[in-house]
């Protein structure tokens, strides 16, 4: 996004990565995307008992331009998918997506024509949170796992090397058609 992306790899870059990761994970602002029952649990997370302010995330933004984490809470209907994508596109980089609950993770028990079978069909998902709905602790757990990811995000040259590695892995991975069992 800026200077850090053009730094050469080395000690300096890893240090910058650590600092940038710490800053980013400590200032996540979620965009509210409550779609169904999961949203109730998401609201509970914002309340005093679970108090997401402990992680600097209490500011749920209704405006995507001011948010960098999208918590997709609830089943996404086919009609909602373009809206979801538009909100995502409006969020500034770097940004993350958390699929909260089984419906947004995979369609859940709604394996039918009306529901998007997982929001990863529409936007890249960084963390999947099962549960129907997940209890607030589960959401906090998922957010903390996401924090870990963010903390360890690579930048610049390191990131590009990582991308190449992932790409190579994806090329030899079996296609969905070839998978057996539930993976298919």
């Amino acid at each position: 996004m800026g200077l850090e992306e053009s730094l050469p790899s080395g000690v300096l870059l890893t240090t910058v990565e650590k600092v940038a990761g710490y800053a980013r994970k400590g200032s996540l602002w979620p965009a509210t995307f409550g779609l169904a029952c999961c949203a109730i649990e998401m609201m509970a997370v914002g309340g005093p008992r679970f108090d997401i302010a402990r992680f600097g995330m209490e500011v749920f933004r209704a405006s995507p331009r001011q948010a960098d984490l999208m918590i997709v809470a609830g089943r996404v209907s086919q009609k909602m998918a373009p809206v979801l994508r538009q909100i995502y596109d409006q969020m500034p980089n770097p940004k993350w997506v958390l699929a909260m609950g089984v419906c947004s993770s995979s369609g859940g028990m709604f394996n039918n024509y009306a529901i998007v079978q997982g929001v990863d069909h529409v936007v890249p998902v960084d963390i999947y949170l099962p549960g129907c709905p997940p209890r607030p602790e589960m959401l906090i757990d998922a957010i903390l796992k996401l924090h870990d990811d963010i903390q360890n995000t690579k930048l610049g040259a390191n990131r590009r090397a990582q991308m190449r590695e992932l790409e190579a892995e994806a090329l030899i991975a079996p296609a969905t058609q070839e998978m057996r069992g539930l993976l298919r």
Partner: peptide, 13 residues
Amino acid sequence: AFELAEDNRASLI
């Protein structure tokens, strides 16, 4: 046990 979040769908199986 409820701490099940994962960063990919395959590990959720």
